[in-house]
């Protein structure tokens, strides 16, 4: 019978009682070994603080984390905008240049008083000269 064989094996080598006691104590929450504390060597803090200052010199402090992230995103957006502009076809680019260098800007820069009126139906900038 299988169970008899197992029982015989168990009786031949029963679990060591002393060990079971140790194991039980160790596994209990709050056991002495878990909370065992020893004063560290006196020079440990000096080594830690010098290692820390070395590490901190290689990393920006926490106060600079968010501006750095913001700058990173701004750079990404600028890059995307440039890439998109470069991909726009020539005619649109020419129109864009024309609108920048066109009459609207010229009028605004001349010493004649002008107001800019946007004609929503044609999407063009109209210039109207005002009497002095």
């Amino acid at each position: 019978m299988e169970w008899k064989k197992k029982l015989a094996e168990y009786q031949a080598t029963p679990p060591p009682t002393a060990w079971n006691e140790i194991e039980e104590t160790l596994l209990q929450d709050g056991n002495s070994l878990y909370h065992h504390a020893v004063s560290p060597p006196t020079d440990s803090w000096e080594s830690i603080s010098s290692k820390l200052s070395l590490t901190e010199n290689n990393h920006a402090p926490r106060a600079f984390h968010w501006p750095r992230t913001a700058l990173r995103y701004a750079a990404m957006i600028a890059f995307l905008a440039l890439a998109t502009t470069a991909m726009i076809n020539n005619s649109f680019r020419n129109a864009l240049i024309e609108s920048i260098q066109g009459t609207g800007i010229k009028a605004a820069l001349s010493d004649t008083q002008h107001i800019l009126i946007k004609d929503s139906s044609k999407h063009k900038i109209m210039v109207k000269q005002l009497p002095r």
Partner: peptide, 15 residues
Amino acid sequence: IPNQEVSALDTLEAD
């Protein structure tokens, strides 16, 4: 595990 009757808890400190 070899069977050894030892009262370890009585004799051993955490250290």
